[in-house]
């Protein structure tokens, strides 16, 4: 059950992947934020710290930002910003 692209439902994957890659509706757990610049600081201050459960809620059209739920609120971030957040245990409903 460790195949990243497993189509079977409710199959958590231990493989790390960027938050930007998870599908709409998928849930995952933050492993960490890459880098140590102001973006990384802002992402951590927004609750994307290790262990935080996240859920992908929506994607804006034309490759725009994505919306995730973290700690019960909704956070919008651009795809390249989300690419800095590593998640694991991805569950696609």
């Amino acid at each position: 059950m460790r195949l990243g692209r497993n189509k079977m439902p409710a199959a958590p994957s231990a493989a790390r992947q960027p938050l930007s890659a998870i599908a709409r509706g998928a849930r995952a757990v933050v492993v960490g934020v890459l880098g140590d610049d102001s973006l990384a600081e802002r992402l951590r201050a927004s609750g994307l710290w290790p262990g935080a459960p996240v859920e992908a809620l929506a994607r804006a059209p034309f490759g725009g930002p994505l919306l995730v739920r973290v700690h019960g609120f909704r956070l919008a971030l651009r795809r390249e910003e989300a690419a800095r957040v590593e998640v694991a245990e991805v569950v696609v409903p």
Partner: peptide
């Protein structure tokens, strides 16, 4: 700039 922003309830 960064976007990272909350969408409020």
């Amino acid at each position: 700039s960064l976007l990272v922003m909350e969408l409020p309830t």
